[in-house]
Nucleic acid binder design. Structure first.
Lengths: 251, 251
DNA sequence: AACACGTTGTGCGATATGTGAACAAAAGTC
DNA sequence: GACTTTTGTTCACATATCGCACAACGTGTT
Protein backbone atom coordinates (compact mmCIF):
# COMPACT_ATOMS: atom_id res chain seq x y z
CA UNK A 1 0.00 0.00 0.00
CA UNK A 2 1.27 3.41 -0.90
CA UNK A 3 1.62 6.05 1.73
CA UNK A 4 -1.01 8.18 0.06
CA UNK A 5 -3.58 5.38 0.29
CA UNK A 6 -3.87 5.98 4.00
CA UNK A 7 -6.24 8.58 5.44
CA UNK A 8 -4.58 9.62 8.66
CA UNK A 9 -7.45 11.89 9.62
CA UNK A 10 -9.74 8.87 9.57
CA UNK A 11 -7.32 6.75 11.57
CA UNK A 12 -6.98 9.49 14.18
CA UNK A 13 -10.73 9.79 14.41
CA UNK A 14 -11.14 6.07 15.03
CA UNK A 15 -8.45 6.24 17.69
CA UNK A 16 -10.43 9.05 19.27
CA UNK A 17 -13.59 6.94 19.40
CA UNK A 18 -11.68 4.11 21.04
CA UNK A 19 -10.50 6.49 23.73
CA UNK A 20 -14.03 6.24 25.07
CA UNK A 21 -13.48 2.91 26.74
CA UNK A 22 -14.41 1.13 29.92
CA UNK A 23 -15.18 3.66 32.60
CA UNK A 24 -14.75 6.83 30.59
CA UNK A 25 -18.05 7.88 29.17
CA UNK A 26 -17.19 11.58 29.33
CA UNK A 27 -13.99 12.95 27.88
CA UNK A 28 -12.65 16.47 27.75
CA UNK A 29 -10.43 17.48 24.85
CA UNK A 30 -7.32 17.35 26.99
CA UNK A 31 -8.18 13.89 28.35
CA UNK A 32 -8.84 12.53 24.88
CA UNK A 33 -5.55 14.03 23.79
CA UNK A 34 -3.68 12.25 26.58
CA UNK A 35 -5.40 8.91 25.96
CA UNK A 36 -4.81 8.93 22.22
CA UNK A 37 -1.45 10.64 22.19
CA UNK A 38 -2.78 13.00 19.55
CA UNK A 39 -2.34 16.75 19.64
CA UNK A 40 -5.08 18.65 21.45
CA UNK A 41 -5.87 20.62 18.33
CA UNK A 42 -6.19 17.42 16.30
CA UNK A 43 -8.31 15.52 18.77
CA UNK A 44 -10.53 18.54 19.12
CA UNK A 45 -11.25 18.52 15.40
CA UNK A 46 -12.05 14.80 15.53
CA UNK A 47 -14.39 15.23 18.47
CA UNK A 48 -16.16 18.21 16.93
CA UNK A 49 -16.59 16.17 13.77
CA UNK A 50 -18.16 13.35 15.78
CA UNK A 51 -20.49 15.84 17.44
CA UNK A 52 -21.40 17.47 14.14
CA UNK A 53 -22.33 14.06 12.72
CA UNK A 54 -24.38 13.13 15.78
CA UNK A 55 -22.07 10.37 16.98
CA UNK A 56 -21.20 12.42 20.06
CA UNK A 57 -22.59 15.23 22.18
CA UNK A 58 -20.71 18.23 23.45
CA UNK A 59 -21.80 20.33 26.39
CA UNK A 60 -18.98 22.81 25.97
CA UNK A 61 -16.77 20.86 28.34
CA UNK A 62 -17.21 17.12 27.89
CA UNK A 63 -17.87 14.90 24.93
CA UNK A 64 -20.15 11.86 25.26
CA UNK A 65 -20.83 9.19 22.67
CA UNK A 66 -24.43 8.83 21.53
CA UNK A 67 -26.23 5.58 20.65
CA UNK A 68 -25.64 6.43 17.01
CA UNK A 69 -22.10 5.19 17.47
CA UNK A 70 -23.56 1.69 17.79
CA UNK A 71 -24.35 1.82 14.11
CA UNK A 72 -20.69 1.37 13.35
CA UNK A 73 -20.30 -1.83 15.29
CA UNK A 74 -23.75 -2.99 14.40
CA UNK A 75 -22.88 -2.89 10.73
CA UNK A 76 -20.66 -5.84 11.52
CA UNK A 77 -23.13 -7.82 13.60
CA UNK A 78 -25.98 -7.45 11.15
CA UNK A 79 -23.76 -7.79 8.09
CA UNK A 80 -22.31 -11.04 9.34
CA UNK A 81 -24.70 -13.92 8.91
CA UNK A 82 -22.94 -15.83 11.67
CA UNK A 83 -24.61 -14.25 14.72
CA UNK A 84 -28.01 -14.37 13.06
CA UNK A 85 -27.64 -18.02 12.16
CA UNK A 86 -26.20 -19.04 15.49
CA UNK A 87 -28.65 -17.21 17.76
CA UNK A 88 -31.63 -19.60 17.54
CA UNK A 89 -29.38 -22.62 18.12
CA UNK A 90 -27.83 -20.83 21.04
CA UNK A 91 -31.22 -20.13 22.54
CA UNK A 92 -32.21 -23.74 22.22
CA UNK A 93 -28.90 -24.82 23.70
CA UNK A 94 -29.25 -22.45 26.61
CA UNK A 95 -32.74 -23.63 27.36
CA UNK A 96 -31.85 -27.30 27.26
CA UNK A 97 -28.75 -26.82 29.38
CA UNK A 98 -30.46 -24.47 31.80
CA UNK A 99 -27.45 -22.15 31.68
CA UNK A 100 -26.04 -19.28 29.67
CA UNK A 101 -24.78 -20.11 26.19
CA UNK A 102 -22.60 -17.83 24.11
CA UNK A 103 -20.81 -17.63 20.78
CA UNK A 104 -17.63 -15.72 20.04
CA UNK A 105 -14.92 -15.16 17.46
CA UNK A 106 -11.23 -14.39 17.85
CA UNK A 107 -9.88 -10.88 17.40
CA UNK A 108 -6.19 -10.75 18.14
CA UNK A 109 -5.60 -11.77 21.74
CA UNK A 110 -9.25 -11.40 22.69
CA UNK A 111 -12.49 -13.19 22.06
CA UNK A 112 -15.46 -11.09 21.01
CA UNK A 113 -18.98 -12.17 21.89
CA UNK A 114 -21.17 -12.21 18.79
CA UNK A 115 -24.30 -13.78 20.31
CA UNK A 116 -25.54 -14.81 23.70
CA UNK A 117 -28.53 -16.54 25.24
CA UNK A 118 -28.89 -15.98 28.96
CA UNK A 119 -30.94 -18.09 31.28
CA UNK A 120 -30.52 -16.79 34.74
CA UNK A 121 -27.86 -14.31 35.67
CA UNK A 122 -25.19 -16.07 37.63
CA UNK A 123 -22.09 -14.36 36.34
CA UNK A 124 -20.87 -11.15 37.85
CA UNK A 125 -19.51 -10.15 34.48
CA UNK A 126 -21.90 -8.38 32.19
CA UNK A 127 -21.47 -9.84 28.73
CA UNK A 128 -23.25 -8.67 25.61
CA UNK A 129 -22.47 -8.98 21.91
CA UNK A 130 -19.32 -6.95 21.41
CA UNK A 131 -17.96 -7.74 24.85
CA UNK A 132 -14.35 -8.88 24.99
CA UNK A 133 -12.40 -11.25 27.17
CA UNK A 134 -8.77 -12.34 27.02
CA UNK A 135 -8.59 -15.51 24.91
CA UNK A 136 -6.02 -17.43 26.96
CA UNK A 137 -8.23 -17.88 30.01
CA UNK A 138 -11.68 -18.30 28.45
CA UNK A 139 -13.07 -21.64 27.29
CA UNK A 140 -14.00 -20.31 23.87
CA UNK A 141 -10.63 -18.57 23.65
CA UNK A 142 -8.86 -21.89 24.27
CA UNK A 143 -10.88 -23.51 21.51
CA UNK A 144 -10.25 -20.66 19.07
CA UNK A 145 -6.52 -20.57 19.81
CA UNK A 146 -6.34 -24.34 19.41
CA UNK A 147 -7.70 -23.87 15.91
CA UNK A 148 -4.67 -21.80 14.93
CA UNK A 149 -1.31 -23.17 13.77
CA UNK A 150 0.93 -23.64 16.81
CA UNK A 151 3.26 -20.80 15.79
CA UNK A 152 0.36 -18.38 15.54
CA UNK A 153 -1.13 -19.46 18.85
CA UNK A 154 2.27 -18.94 20.44
CA UNK A 155 2.49 -15.50 18.87
CA UNK A 156 -0.92 -14.57 20.28
CA UNK A 157 0.17 -15.69 23.74
CA UNK A 158 3.32 -13.62 23.41
CA UNK A 159 1.22 -10.54 22.69
CA UNK A 160 -1.29 -11.30 25.48
CA UNK A 161 -1.15 -9.65 28.84
CA UNK A 162 -1.29 -12.83 30.85
CA UNK A 163 -2.22 -12.45 34.48
CA UNK A 164 -3.61 -14.72 37.17
CA UNK A 165 -7.23 -13.66 37.53
CA UNK A 166 -7.74 -16.43 40.08
CA UNK A 167 -5.46 -18.98 41.75
CA UNK A 168 -6.59 -21.43 39.05
CA UNK A 169 -5.49 -19.35 36.08
CA UNK A 170 -2.92 -21.03 33.86
CA UNK A 171 -0.32 -18.39 33.06
CA UNK A 172 2.69 -20.31 31.71
CA UNK A 173 2.67 -20.10 27.88
CA UNK A 174 4.16 -23.60 27.62
CA UNK A 175 1.47 -25.06 29.87
CA UNK A 176 -1.10 -23.29 27.73
CA UNK A 177 0.40 -24.68 24.53
CA UNK A 178 0.12 -28.18 25.96
CA UNK A 179 -3.45 -27.40 26.91
CA UNK A 180 -4.16 -26.25 23.35
CA UNK A 181 -2.91 -29.57 22.01
CA UNK A 182 -5.23 -31.43 24.33
CA UNK A 183 -8.16 -29.23 23.38
CA UNK A 184 -7.41 -29.83 19.69
CA UNK A 185 -7.28 -33.58 20.28
CA UNK A 186 -10.44 -33.89 22.37
CA UNK A 187 -12.39 -31.21 20.51
CA UNK A 188 -13.49 -29.19 23.51
CA UNK A 189 -12.10 -26.98 26.27
CA UNK A 190 -13.09 -26.72 29.90
CA UNK A 191 -12.27 -23.77 32.11
CA UNK A 192 -12.40 -24.28 35.87
CA UNK A 193 -12.61 -20.85 37.47
CA UNK A 194 -9.63 -19.42 35.61
CA UNK A 195 -11.35 -16.18 34.72
CA UNK A 196 -13.47 -15.69 37.78
CA UNK A 197 -13.91 -17.66 40.96
CA UNK A 198 -17.12 -19.65 40.88
CA UNK A 199 -17.42 -19.84 37.12
CA UNK A 200 -16.88 -22.93 34.97
CA UNK A 201 -17.43 -23.27 31.27
CA UNK A 202 -17.09 -25.70 28.41
CA UNK A 203 -16.65 -24.78 24.74
CA UNK A 204 -16.51 -26.46 21.34
CA UNK A 205 -15.41 -25.05 17.97
CA UNK A 206 -17.70 -24.14 15.08
CA UNK A 207 -16.09 -24.93 11.76
CA UNK A 208 -16.93 -23.92 8.22
CA UNK A 209 -17.15 -26.49 5.42
CA UNK A 210 -13.40 -26.28 4.87
CA UNK A 211 -12.77 -27.38 8.43
CA UNK A 212 -11.51 -23.98 9.59
CA UNK A 213 -12.52 -22.88 13.08
CA UNK A 214 -14.49 -19.70 12.62
CA UNK A 215 -16.20 -19.39 15.99
CA UNK A 216 -16.77 -21.14 19.29
CA UNK A 217 -19.83 -21.75 21.42
CA UNK A 218 -19.91 -22.44 25.14
CA UNK A 219 -22.01 -23.13 28.17
CA UNK A 220 -21.17 -21.46 31.45
CA UNK A 221 -22.28 -22.70 34.85
CA UNK A 222 -21.56 -21.79 38.46
CA UNK A 223 -18.93 -23.97 40.11
CA UNK A 224 -21.29 -24.31 43.04
CA UNK A 225 -23.78 -25.96 40.74
CA UNK A 226 -21.57 -28.42 38.93
CA UNK A 227 -17.95 -29.54 39.23
CA UNK A 228 -15.78 -28.70 36.24
CA UNK A 229 -14.90 -32.39 35.89
CA UNK A 230 -18.58 -33.24 35.35
CA UNK A 231 -19.20 -30.60 32.72
CA UNK A 232 -18.09 -32.72 29.77
CA UNK A 233 -20.36 -35.57 30.72
CA UNK A 234 -23.32 -33.32 31.31
CA UNK A 235 -23.03 -30.70 28.56
CA UNK A 236 -20.76 -32.07 25.86
CA UNK A 237 -23.55 -34.05 24.16
CA UNK A 238 -25.68 -30.91 23.91
CA UNK A 239 -22.77 -28.89 22.58
CA UNK A 240 -21.86 -31.60 20.07
CA UNK A 241 -25.42 -31.66 18.82
CA UNK A 242 -25.53 -27.90 18.35
CA UNK A 243 -22.13 -28.04 16.71
CA UNK A 244 -23.34 -30.69 14.29
CA UNK A 245 -26.44 -28.74 13.33
CA UNK A 246 -24.44 -25.57 12.76
CA UNK A 247 -21.95 -27.46 10.59
CA UNK A 248 -24.83 -28.41 8.33
CA UNK A 249 -26.17 -24.89 8.18
CA UNK A 250 -22.93 -22.95 7.72
CA UNK A 251 -21.07 -22.75 4.44
CA UNK B 1 -18.31 25.62 14.67
CA UNK B 2 -15.87 26.86 12.09
CA UNK B 3 -15.52 25.11 8.80
CA UNK B 4 -11.93 24.16 9.60
CA UNK B 5 -13.01 22.35 12.77
CA UNK B 6 -14.48 19.57 10.67
CA UNK B 7 -12.40 16.64 9.47
CA UNK B 8 -14.10 15.56 6.28
CA UNK B 9 -11.78 12.59 5.83
CA UNK B 10 -13.02 11.23 9.14
CA UNK B 11 -16.65 11.84 8.26
CA UNK B 12 -16.19 10.08 4.93
CA UNK B 13 -14.58 7.14 6.65
CA UNK B 14 -17.48 6.77 9.06
CA UNK B 15 -19.88 6.91 6.16
CA UNK B 16 -17.88 4.15 4.55
CA UNK B 17 -18.22 1.95 7.63
CA UNK B 18 -21.96 2.49 7.66
CA UNK B 19 -22.14 1.34 4.06
CA UNK B 20 -21.62 -2.13 5.47
CA UNK B 21 -25.20 -2.63 6.52
CA UNK B 22 -27.83 -5.31 6.60
CA UNK B 23 -27.10 -7.89 3.96
CA UNK B 24 -23.87 -6.45 2.65
CA UNK B 25 -20.98 -7.99 4.48
CA UNK B 26 -18.71 -7.82 1.45
CA UNK B 27 -18.22 -4.60 -0.46
CA UNK B 28 -16.09 -3.87 -3.50
CA UNK B 29 -14.68 -0.40 -3.94
CA UNK B 30 -17.21 0.46 -6.63
CA UNK B 31 -20.13 -0.78 -4.50
CA UNK B 32 -19.00 1.21 -1.50
CA UNK B 33 -18.65 4.24 -3.72
CA UNK B 34 -22.23 3.88 -4.96
CA UNK B 35 -23.65 3.32 -1.49
CA UNK B 36 -21.87 6.26 0.09
CA UNK B 37 -21.95 8.61 -2.86
CA UNK B 38 -18.26 9.21 -2.32
CA UNK B 39 -15.68 9.18 -5.07
CA UNK B 40 -14.16 5.78 -5.78
CA UNK B 41 -10.68 7.04 -5.08
CA UNK B 42 -11.82 8.45 -1.75
CA UNK B 43 -13.73 5.39 -0.63
CA UNK B 44 -10.78 3.24 -1.67
CA UNK B 45 -8.45 5.22 0.58
CA UNK B 46 -10.92 4.91 3.47
CA UNK B 47 -11.27 1.17 2.98
CA UNK B 48 -7.52 0.64 2.71
CA UNK B 49 -7.14 2.64 5.91
CA UNK B 50 -9.67 0.41 7.65
CA UNK B 51 -7.79 -2.65 6.41
CA UNK B 52 -4.43 -1.26 7.47
CA UNK B 53 -5.80 -0.65 10.98
CA UNK B 54 -7.32 -4.14 11.18
CA UNK B 55 -10.94 -2.99 11.14
CA UNK B 56 -11.43 -4.62 7.75
CA UNK B 57 -9.96 -7.32 5.57
CA UNK B 58 -9.18 -7.05 1.90
CA UNK B 59 -8.76 -10.00 -0.43
CA UNK B 60 -7.87 -7.83 -3.40
CA UNK B 61 -11.47 -7.66 -4.49
CA UNK B 62 -13.80 -7.37 -1.53
CA UNK B 63 -13.59 -5.66 1.82
CA UNK B 64 -15.10 -7.28 4.93
CA UNK B 65 -15.41 -5.78 8.39
CA UNK B 66 -13.62 -7.62 11.19
CA UNK B 67 -14.84 -8.03 14.78
CA UNK B 68 -12.45 -5.24 15.72
CA UNK B 69 -15.04 -2.81 14.38
CA UNK B 70 -17.22 -3.76 17.37
CA UNK B 71 -14.80 -1.89 19.58
CA UNK B 72 -16.17 1.35 18.24
CA UNK B 73 -19.75 0.66 19.18
CA UNK B 74 -18.79 -1.18 22.30
CA UNK B 75 -17.06 1.88 23.65
CA UNK B 76 -20.55 3.26 24.03
CA UNK B 77 -22.15 0.24 25.65
CA UNK B 78 -19.41 -0.30 28.19
CA UNK B 79 -18.83 3.39 28.78
CA UNK B 80 -22.47 4.03 29.49
CA UNK B 81 -23.47 2.91 32.95
CA UNK B 82 -27.08 2.58 31.85
CA UNK B 83 -26.94 -0.87 30.18
CA UNK B 84 -24.79 -2.24 32.97
CA UNK B 85 -27.11 -0.99 35.66
CA UNK B 86 -30.26 -2.04 33.87
CA UNK B 87 -29.19 -5.55 32.86
CA UNK B 88 -29.67 -7.33 36.23
CA UNK B 89 -33.08 -5.74 36.71
CA UNK B 90 -33.99 -6.77 33.19
CA UNK B 91 -32.94 -10.34 33.88
CA UNK B 92 -35.05 -10.45 36.99
CA UNK B 93 -37.97 -8.90 35.16
CA UNK B 94 -37.67 -11.38 32.31
CA UNK B 95 -37.55 -14.30 34.67
CA UNK B 96 -40.56 -13.19 36.68
CA UNK B 97 -42.60 -12.40 33.59
CA UNK B 98 -41.51 -15.52 31.77
CA UNK B 99 -40.96 -13.50 28.61
CA UNK B 100 -38.32 -11.40 26.89
CA UNK B 101 -37.49 -8.08 28.49
CA UNK B 102 -35.54 -5.32 26.78
CA UNK B 103 -34.27 -1.79 27.31
CA UNK B 104 -33.72 0.83 24.64
CA UNK B 105 -32.96 4.50 24.07
CA UNK B 106 -34.07 6.86 21.33
CA UNK B 107 -31.77 7.78 18.44
CA UNK B 108 -33.54 9.97 15.95
CA UNK B 109 -36.51 8.11 14.52
CA UNK B 110 -35.31 4.76 15.80
CA UNK B 111 -35.00 2.99 19.10
CA UNK B 112 -31.70 1.30 19.87
CA UNK B 113 -31.57 -1.77 22.10
CA UNK B 114 -29.04 -1.30 24.87
CA UNK B 115 -29.81 -4.44 26.89
CA UNK B 116 -31.94 -7.51 26.60
CA UNK B 117 -32.87 -10.56 28.63
CA UNK B 118 -34.36 -13.38 26.63
CA UNK B 119 -36.40 -16.19 28.04
CA UNK B 120 -37.54 -18.33 25.20
CA UNK B 121 -37.27 -17.27 21.61
CA UNK B 122 -40.68 -16.39 20.36
CA UNK B 123 -39.93 -13.49 18.09
CA UNK B 124 -38.84 -13.98 14.53
CA UNK B 125 -36.79 -10.80 14.78
CA UNK B 126 -33.29 -11.19 16.05
CA UNK B 127 -32.64 -8.41 18.52
CA UNK B 128 -29.36 -7.75 20.26
CA UNK B 129 -27.86 -4.66 21.89
CA UNK B 130 -27.34 -2.24 19.04
CA UNK B 131 -30.35 -3.46 17.09
CA UNK B 132 -32.68 -0.79 15.80
CA UNK B 133 -36.41 -0.58 15.22
CA UNK B 134 -38.58 2.30 14.02
CA UNK B 135 -39.82 4.18 17.09
CA UNK B 136 -43.37 4.90 15.94
CA UNK B 137 -44.50 1.25 15.94
CA UNK B 138 -42.58 -0.17 18.92
CA UNK B 139 -43.87 -0.06 22.48
CA UNK B 140 -40.62 1.42 23.80
CA UNK B 141 -40.60 3.84 20.89
CA UNK B 142 -44.06 5.09 21.82
CA UNK B 143 -42.94 5.63 25.39
CA UNK B 144 -39.77 7.43 24.35
CA UNK B 145 -41.57 9.66 21.86
CA UNK B 146 -44.21 10.45 24.49
CA UNK B 147 -41.39 11.75 26.66
CA UNK B 148 -40.54 14.42 24.09
CA UNK B 149 -42.25 17.80 23.74
CA UNK B 150 -45.15 17.45 21.29
CA UNK B 151 -43.44 19.56 18.62
CA UNK B 152 -40.36 17.33 18.72
CA UNK B 153 -42.38 14.14 18.63
CA UNK B 154 -44.23 15.50 15.62
CA UNK B 155 -40.92 16.36 13.96
CA UNK B 156 -39.64 12.82 14.53
CA UNK B 157 -42.79 11.39 12.96
CA UNK B 158 -42.35 13.71 9.99
CA UNK B 159 -38.85 12.34 9.47
CA UNK B 160 -39.95 8.71 9.96
CA UNK B 161 -40.63 6.38 7.09
CA UNK B 162 -44.01 5.24 8.31
CA UNK B 163 -45.36 2.09 6.77
CA UNK B 164 -47.94 -0.50 7.73
CA UNK B 165 -45.93 -3.51 8.84
CA UNK B 166 -49.17 -5.30 9.70
CA UNK B 167 -52.87 -4.49 9.30
CA UNK B 168 -52.73 -3.24 12.91
CA UNK B 169 -50.01 -0.66 12.39
CA UNK B 170 -51.07 2.90 13.19
CA UNK B 171 -49.70 5.06 10.40
CA UNK B 172 -51.57 8.36 10.67
CA UNK B 173 -49.32 10.91 12.45
CA UNK B 174 -52.34 12.53 14.10
CA UNK B 175 -53.58 9.21 15.43
CA UNK B 176 -50.08 8.57 16.75
CA UNK B 177 -49.93 11.97 18.43
CA UNK B 178 -53.20 11.19 20.22
CA UNK B 179 -51.71 7.84 21.19
CA UNK B 180 -48.64 9.60 22.59
CA UNK B 181 -50.86 11.76 24.78
CA UNK B 182 -52.58 8.70 26.15
CA UNK B 183 -49.26 6.98 26.77
CA UNK B 184 -48.00 10.04 28.60
CA UNK B 185 -51.12 10.17 30.74
CA UNK B 186 -51.25 6.48 31.66
CA UNK B 187 -47.48 6.01 31.86
CA UNK B 188 -47.20 2.99 29.63
CA UNK B 189 -47.62 1.90 26.01
CA UNK B 190 -49.05 -1.29 24.59
CA UNK B 191 -48.41 -2.50 21.06
CA UNK B 192 -50.78 -5.06 19.62
CA UNK B 193 -49.05 -6.66 16.64
CA UNK B 194 -48.17 -3.37 14.95
CA UNK B 195 -44.61 -4.39 14.20
CA UNK B 196 -45.10 -8.04 13.53
CA UNK B 197 -48.13 -10.30 13.48
CA UNK B 198 -48.26 -12.38 16.65
CA UNK B 199 -46.22 -10.04 18.81
CA UNK B 200 -47.54 -7.87 21.64
CA UNK B 201 -45.52 -5.75 24.01
CA UNK B 202 -45.87 -3.32 26.87
CA UNK B 203 -43.36 -0.64 27.82
CA UNK B 204 -42.79 1.93 30.55
CA UNK B 205 -40.33 4.84 30.69
CA UNK B 206 -37.18 5.01 32.79
CA UNK B 207 -36.57 8.50 34.09
CA UNK B 208 -33.56 10.15 35.64
CA UNK B 209 -33.83 12.12 38.86
CA UNK B 210 -34.85 15.23 36.93
CA UNK B 211 -37.87 13.40 35.54
CA UNK B 212 -36.50 13.20 32.00
CA UNK B 213 -37.22 10.02 30.08
CA UNK B 214 -33.82 8.55 29.27
CA UNK B 215 -34.76 5.00 28.32
CA UNK B 216 -37.64 2.55 28.17
CA UNK B 217 -38.05 -1.06 29.21
CA UNK B 218 -40.55 -3.53 27.86
CA UNK B 219 -41.91 -7.05 27.99
CA UNK B 220 -42.82 -8.81 24.77
CA UNK B 221 -45.16 -11.78 24.53
CA UNK B 222 -46.76 -13.77 21.74
CA UNK B 223 -50.31 -12.73 20.91
CA UNK B 224 -51.23 -16.40 20.98
CA UNK B 225 -50.19 -16.49 24.61
CA UNK B 226 -51.88 -13.39 25.93
CA UNK B 227 -54.31 -10.84 24.52
CA UNK B 228 -52.91 -7.32 24.26
CA UNK B 229 -55.78 -6.06 26.40
CA UNK B 230 -54.66 -8.30 29.27
CA UNK B 231 -51.03 -7.26 29.17
CA UNK B 232 -51.39 -4.25 31.44
CA UNK B 233 -53.13 -6.26 34.12
CA UNK B 234 -50.60 -9.07 33.96
CA UNK B 235 -47.30 -7.27 33.43
CA UNK B 236 -47.72 -3.64 34.43
CA UNK B 237 -47.15 -4.33 38.14
CA UNK B 238 -43.84 -6.03 37.35
CA UNK B 239 -42.78 -3.23 35.03
CA UNK B 240 -43.74 -0.60 37.59
CA UNK B 241 -41.70 -2.35 40.23
CA UNK B 242 -38.63 -2.51 38.01
CA UNK B 243 -39.17 1.10 37.04
CA UNK B 244 -39.33 2.12 40.68
CA UNK B 245 -36.13 0.29 41.57
CA UNK B 246 -34.28 1.82 38.64
CA UNK B 247 -35.47 5.28 39.58
CA UNK B 248 -33.79 4.81 42.94
CA UNK B 249 -30.56 3.55 41.40
CA UNK B 250 -30.16 6.04 38.55
CA UNK B 251 -28.99 9.58 38.97
C1' DA C 1 -10.11 -10.64 -32.27
C1' DA C 2 -12.15 -6.60 -31.52
C1' DC C 3 -15.50 -4.42 -28.83
C1' DA C 4 -18.11 -2.52 -25.00
C1' DC C 5 -18.54 -2.53 -20.27
C1' DG C 6 -17.46 -2.29 -15.58
C1' DT C 7 -13.93 -2.45 -12.58
C1' DT C 8 -9.55 -0.96 -9.98
C1' DG C 9 -5.29 1.78 -9.87
C1' DT C 10 -2.66 6.33 -10.40
C1' DG C 11 -0.72 11.22 -11.48
C1' DC C 12 -1.65 15.80 -10.49
C1' DG C 13 -3.27 20.49 -9.27
C1' DA C 14 -6.29 22.70 -5.97
C1' DT C 15 -7.55 22.52 -1.44
C1' DA C 16 -8.17 21.00 3.21
C1' DT C 17 -5.74 19.21 7.28
C1' DG C 18 -2.14 18.42 11.02
C1' DT C 19 1.22 20.45 13.69
C1' DG C 20 3.33 23.08 17.29
C1' DA C 21 3.57 27.47 19.01
C1' DA C 22 1.25 31.36 20.85
C1' DC C 23 -2.52 33.28 23.29
C1' DA C 24 -6.67 33.52 26.32
C1' DA C 25 -9.36 31.74 29.73
C1' DA C 26 -10.19 28.67 33.62
C1' DA C 27 -8.93 26.08 37.36
C1' DG C 28 -6.02 25.03 41.04
C1' DT C 29 -2.60 26.31 44.73
C1' DC C 30 -0.63 28.75 48.25
C1' DG D 1 -5.58 37.86 45.48
C1' DA D 2 -1.36 36.80 43.05
C1' DC D 3 0.69 32.82 41.48
C1' DT D 4 1.29 28.60 38.66
C1' DT D 5 -0.77 25.02 35.91
C1' DT D 6 -3.99 23.22 32.94
C1' DT D 7 -7.21 23.63 29.23
C1' DG D 8 -9.43 25.39 25.05
C1' DT D 9 -8.86 28.06 20.95
C1' DT D 10 -6.59 30.32 17.11
C1' DC D 11 -2.98 30.94 13.69
C1' DA D 12 0.45 30.29 9.91
C1' DC D 13 2.42 27.20 7.10
C1' DA D 14 4.27 22.83 5.44
C1' DT D 15 2.14 18.89 3.79
C1' DA D 16 -1.23 15.31 3.12
C1' DT D 17 -5.71 14.53 1.01
C1' DC D 18 -9.56 15.07 -2.51
C1' DG D 19 -11.56 14.42 -6.70
C1' DC D 20 -10.93 14.52 -11.39
C1' DA D 21 -9.25 12.57 -15.65
C1' DC D 22 -7.02 8.93 -17.56
C1' DA D 23 -4.66 4.38 -17.76
C1' DA D 24 -4.82 -0.51 -17.04
C1' DC D 25 -7.13 -4.61 -16.38
C1' DG D 26 -10.55 -8.25 -16.67
C1' DT D 27 -14.89 -10.34 -18.55
C1' DG D 28 -18.23 -11.48 -21.43
C1' DT D 29 -20.41 -10.59 -26.21
C1' DT D 30 -20.62 -10.41 -31.04
Amino acid sequence: MRETDFVSGFAKGLKTIEAFGETRQRLSIAEASKLTGLDRATVRRSLLTLAELGYAEYDGKFFTLTPKILRLGHAYLSATPLPTIIQPYLDQLSERAGHNASASVLDGTEIVYIARASQRRVMSINLTPGSRLPAYCASMGRVLLSGLPESEARAVLARSEIKANTPNTKTDPEVLMVEFRRVRAQGYAIIDQELEIGLCSIAVPIENDRGQTIAAINIGAPAAYIAAADMAERYLPLLRETQKMLRLVLR
